[in-house]
């Protein structure tokens, strides 16, 4: 089935089956809870910032293939990056997923998330981890984020 394979690409399925950085960071500088009340997707994102670098980033939670893979890909791509680079990626992913702006290719692996564009009801699944990251980078302590 055409559309389905674009949404559930191998990379997405791989991250869904084997989520990367799926753990707690005990000494995280930010731990933010993200929640999608519509479908019950729920995650905790842990970020440990040292100076201007993301020394460690991880997540835990329960969700659909899209939200799990999105969170997993997020942690993988931000590991060891500068905070400024993380901010830039965040903005690009948000623009791509919510407005269809920018190019999926330029985002490398993360470009795979653009498959949700053809599934409007699933955009918020892909966005959950990124909205949670947004709150974490904004340094809002331990707030709750929802994609509703």
């Amino acid at each position: 089935m055409e559309g389905l394979r674009e949404l559930y690409q191998e990379l997405i399925l791989d991250h869904k089956r084997h989520p990367r950085n799926f753990r707690v960071i005990a000494d995280a500088t930010a731990a933010v809870e993200g929640h999608n009340p519509l479908c019950g997707d729920h995650l905790w994102l842990y970020v440990k910032v040292e100076g201007d670098r993301i020394a460690d980033v991880a997540f835990q939670g329960e969700g659909c293939a899209i939200s799990t893979a999105s969170a997993s890909l997020l942690t993988e791509s931000l590991q060891g990056q500068s905070v400024a680079e993380a901010e830039r990626l965040l903005q690009e992913v948000i623009a791509l997923l919510t407005e269809g702006k920018g190019s999926a290719e330029a985002l490398g692996k993360l470009g795979v998330l653009a498959g949700v564009r053809d599934f409007p009801s699933r955009v918020k699944c892909a966005m959950l981890a990124w909205r949670t990251l947004e709150a974490a980078l904004a340094g809002k302590g331990t707030p709750s984020v929802t994609t509703e």
Partner: peptide, 22 residues
Amino acid sequence: GVHAHDLGTVLDRYGVAIRVGH
């Protein structure tokens, strides 16, 4: 192994409308 939300999306592709969620 399959979240209800993903199930809903796959079924929709085959013209099947069900409800997923809480």
